[in-house]
Simulated scan of single mutants.
Amino acid sequence: MDEKAISLVQDSFAKVVPIKDQAAEIFYADLFETAPQVKPYFANADMTEQGSKLMATLAVVVNGLRDLGKIVPVAEQLAVKHVDYGVKAEDYDAVGASLLRTLEKGLGDAFTPDVKDAWTGAYATLAGVMKTAAYSES
Results as ranks from 00 to 15, higher is better:
residue 124 A to S: 15
residue 109 D to W: 09
residue 74 V to E: 07
residue 55 M to V: 00
residue 29 A to Y: 12
residue 41 Y to E: 06
residue 51 G to R: 02
residue 27 F to T: 01
residue 45 A to I: 07
residue 63 N to Q: 08
residue 98 S to V: 02
residue 98 S to N: 14
residue 91 D to Y: 08
residue 109 D to T: 12
residue 85 Y to V: 01
residue 77 Q to D: 13
residue 51 G to S: 10
residue 57 T to W: 09
residue 108 G to L: 07
residue 52 S to P: 09
residue 10 Q to N: 09
residue 1 M to W: 13
residue 71 I to W: 10
residue 92 Y to K: 13
residue 132 T to A: 14
residue 16 V to R: 03
residue 43 A to S: 13
residue 26 I to E: 03
residue 33 E to I: 12
residue 129 V to S: 02
residue 9 V to Y: 02
residue 94 A to H: 06
residue 117 D to N: 12
residue 111 F to I: 07
residue 58 L to H: 00
residue 116 K to C: 06
residue 85 Y to P: 06
residue 126 L to A: 11
residue 130 M to A: 08
residue 2 D to I: 02
residue 41 Y to P: 06
residue 104 E to Y: 04
residue 15 K to A: 11
residue 70 K to L: 15
residue 9 V to L: 08
residue 116 K to Q: 13
residue 22 Q to K: 13
residue 82 H to I: 04
residue 57 T to A: 08
residue 50 Q to S: 01
residue 59 A to G: 09
residue 13 F to N: 00
residue 124 A to L: 11
residue 67 D to K: 03
residue 97 A to C: 07
residue 96 G to D: 00
residue 109 D to E: 15
residue 106 G to C: 15
residue 89 A to V: 00
residue 93 D to R: 09
residue 87 V to P: 01
residue 42 F to G: 04
residue 91 D to E: 00
residue 57 T to L: 04
residue 72 V to S: 13
residue 40 P to L: 00
residue 58 L to I: 10
residue 58 L to A: 04
residue 27 F to K: 01
residue 66 R to T: 15
residue 32 F to V: 04
residue 78 L to V: 03
residue 59 A to E: 15
residue 76 E to Y: 01
residue 40 P to Q: 03
residue 124 A to D: 15
residue 124 A to V: 11
residue 32 F to P: 04
residue 9 V to P: 00
residue 91 D to M: 05
residue 72 V to H: 14
residue 79 A to I: 09
residue 78 L to C: 04
residue 48 T to I: 04
residue 75 A to Q: 10
residue 104 E to W: 05
residue 72 V to T: 05
residue 115 V to D: 01
residue 92 Y to W: 09
residue 40 P to D: 05
residue 20 K to M: 10
residue 100 L to Y: 07
residue 114 D to L: 11
residue 24 A to V: 01
residue 21 D to P: 15
residue 76 E to V: 07
residue 83 V to S: 01
residue 30 D to P: 13
residue 63 N to E: 06
residue 117 D to I: 07
residue 92 Y to I: 10
residue 128 G to R: 08
residue 61 V to H: 12
residue 50 Q to I: 08
residue 56 A to R: 15
residue 36 P to V: 14
residue 84 D to K: 09
residue 45 A to R: 13
residue 85 Y to G: 05
residue 8 L to Y: 04
residue 129 V to Y: 05
